[in-house]
Amino acid sequence: MALTEDQIIRYSRHILLKGVGGVGQEKLLGSRVLVVGAGGLGSPVSLYLAASGVGTIGVVDADEVDLSNLQRQIVHDTDDVGRAKVESAAERIAEINSDVRVEKHPYRLNAENALDLVNQYDFIVEGTDNFPTKFLVNDACVFAGKAFSIGGILRFQGSTMTHVGSSACYRCVFRQPPPKDAVPTCSQAGVFGAVAGMLGTVQAAETVKYLLGLGELLTDRVLSFDALTMEWRRVEIKRDPNCPICGENPSITELVEAEQATCAWQPSGAREEAQTVQTGV
């Protein structure tokens, strides 16, 4: 596959980078990434992946665009209110870059479809607003041996981690979704719009770095951000040999979906520093 004259110009600032070049750009154009959730985090993720020329972007989301989403979900426009989020995101991606093919999955990721879906992609980016989906993405990707990024935001904070190969998984840090009644709802908690951009952009960068084999990923680490202090913190985490899914004697051997608890943000028993790998709202 040779880059066209337009592609050479479009991607010139990538091609210039040491470690990317034409070879790397062609690799991106041949890559397949699944974005789980076309919301606050999924918006900047899909926008940057589209602009970067990731050749195939799968978007899975069952929701329609709501007026209250537009404060942070920048892949959608005012005219999109009421439309399926996957349709709205696909249209925007096509406007940004016609090199990108969008695969629309207008349904909820569940225990039945998760494994098949993640198996179709090279990297999975999770940015949903609920814990059951975070655990489902983690579990499906661990089973499928797929690398992924999980992100969460709430109020003025956010955090994200990346899993590749034998690095710590989400369950190594957070055993299970928090109890349903232990978590505030989106409307109670609120979310600072730009935090979605801060964290989603980190997830997009991690995705492209993984696809190109560049630098160090956020593996065995949780990166947290607080917009009020403008501080980033990196907390080391370790793979847990007793992890119920990636440990030595796993107790989870098939995909199960936890009870839905939206906008959860405080996993019980989680480490104080790491507890903000929360919701994608």
Binding site: I8, S12, L16, G21, G22
Partner: peptide, 13 residues
Amino acid sequence: CPYTFVKSKLALE
């Protein structure tokens, strides 16, 4: 610039 280098780099690859 920068296309002189961009195209040189692509050719070297």
